[in-house]
């Protein structure tokens, strides 16, 4: 789907859950990624998968098992998860 990047460098594997997995059609989204901030990651993800953009805007991002702010760094190969609004109980 991103042929221009298919054989290029580092990528990021992003775990998605629940309604976001349904919107994305998969539980893990791969993005080409050379490092950047959470804000840049949000933009990259929304551009690559417009279907998730609206829910993504209401979601938290966890990097390395901790919730991260928009200015926090995301290294290539980091463990990243998108956490949409919760509904347990």
């Amino acid at each position: 789907m991103h042929d221009e990047d298919a054989n290029a460098g580092p990528r990021l594997r992003i775990a998605v859950f629940a309604g976001m997995a349904e919107l994305a059609g998969c539980r893990q989204i791969d993005l080409p990624w050379r490092g950047g901030t959470v804000a840049e990651l949000r933009r990259g993800l929304a551009d690559a998968h417009p279907a998730v953009a609206s829910l993504l805007a209401r979601s938290a991002v966890a990097v390395g098992g901790r919730y991260a702010g928009d200015d926090d760094p995301v290294a290539a190969g980091a463990d990243v998860a998108v956490i949409p609004p919760v509904s347990g109980g």
């Binding site: 859950f17 629940a18 309604g19 209401r58 956490i83 949409p84 609004p85 509904s87 347990g88």
Partner: peptide, 23 residues
């Protein structure tokens, strides 16, 4: 970070992501 999906009588499924709370 736990989510529920409701499945209705008609088989319709919906993951719940309430406007509030945000995680």
């Amino acid at each position: 970070p736990i989510w529920k999906c409701e499945e209705g009588e008609d088989g319709r499924r919906e993951w719940l992501h309430p406007a509030d709370p945000t995680p």
